[in-house]
């Protein structure tokens, strides 16, 4: 309850902050639409020459693109601003004020701010998924929708855990811009179904930097390509990562050096 109240105050403040800079908002709505356009153009060009990408048809791939856009929106709205802020705070030492508050530091560090207009991406992503379903003339069964929701939540948890681990590294290295860039490079690969990749790349994308869980698996769930076991494995995997990342964060906190006086 208390945390929900805090969350609403945090978000209210973030929105107030955004409203201070209006031009930014409009520019970014355009950016979102432009990027989505590019993604669709890319996929369309591919399908002009081939009927299938791996064993995925055009609308099925669009669904993956939709999920990619959705998570991109979630990350940009919820994760990136916080991660950026934490890195900045670690660098100049104002993270002190987070640590001296009687509230879970991980909570403040990871949910302190939101960039609302980035959620436009998430909405567009959902729209694209719905459109793709329409094209396929498929109505998912309740079970499939259930699997999809579980996979979606697991995907969110996995992405969050990865970000938390990346932030934790900042306690030692302070500047981790390149680590986050590296993650983005991997995330870009999630734009297409991971089954089109072969061998090592696919293993890496499934288990090392588990992008597959974020885009491909939820899409598969909606298409009825995933059974109960896989869903449960994905869920367990997400929980495991959450716990591990929390441990790592706590461990890393010990190395906070509190820059300058």
């Amino acid at each position: 309850m208390r945390y929900l109240r805090l969350l609403s105050i945090f978000y209210k403040n973030s929105i107030l902050k955004e409203l201070e800079y209006r031009a930014n908002f409009i520019a970014n709505v355009f950016m979102s639409i432009l990027w989505l356009g590019w993604a669709i153009v890319g996929v369309s060009v591919f399908f002009l020459h081939r009927d299938k990408m791996g064993d995925w048809t055009y609308p099925e791939v669009l669904m993956v693109v939709g999920l990619f856009t959705f998570f991109n929106g979630v990350m940009e709205a919820l994760l990136r601003p916080n991660v950026g802020a934490v890195i900045e705070q670690i660098r100049d030492g104002t993270f002190d004020f987070v640590l001296t508050k009687p509230v879970n530091a991980q909570f403040i560090a990871s949910l302190r701010s939101i960039i609302v207009w980035r959620l436009v991406d998430a909405v567009i992503g959902i729209g694209l998924i719905a459109y793709a379903l329409g094209q396929l003339r498929v109505t998912p069964t309740p079970t499939q929708i259930g699997f999809f929701v579980v996979m979606l939540l697991s995907g969110t948890a996995i992405v969050y855990a990865i970000w938390l681990v990346m932030v934790s590294f900042a306690f030692w290295f302070v500047r981790i811009d390149n680590i986050t860039e590296l993650f983005y490079a991997f995330y870009e690969a999630g734009r297409y179904p991971v089954t089109i990749y072969r061998g090592v790349v696919r293993v890496v994308l499934t288990y090392i930097v588990p992008i597959a869980f974020v885009t491909t698996f939820p899409a598969s769930a909606l298409l009825g390509r995933i059974d109960q076991t896989t869903t449960l494995v994905g869920f367990a995997f997400a929980i495991g990562l959450l716990i591990a990342s929390n441990r790592f964060w706590k461990f890393a906190l010990r190395y906070y050096a509190s820059a300058s006086s």
């Binding site: 403040n13 100049d92 030492g93 104002t94 001296t100 009687p102 300058s260």
Partner: peptide, 20 residues
């Protein structure tokens, strides 16, 4: 319970939100 009873003020660092 501890953090509720203490405070830290640093002349060189600020906790106020800059834009608000």
């Amino acid at each position: 319970a501890f953090l509720r009873q203490i405070t830290l003020v640093m002349g060189q660092k600020q906790q106020l939100a800059w834009d608000l």
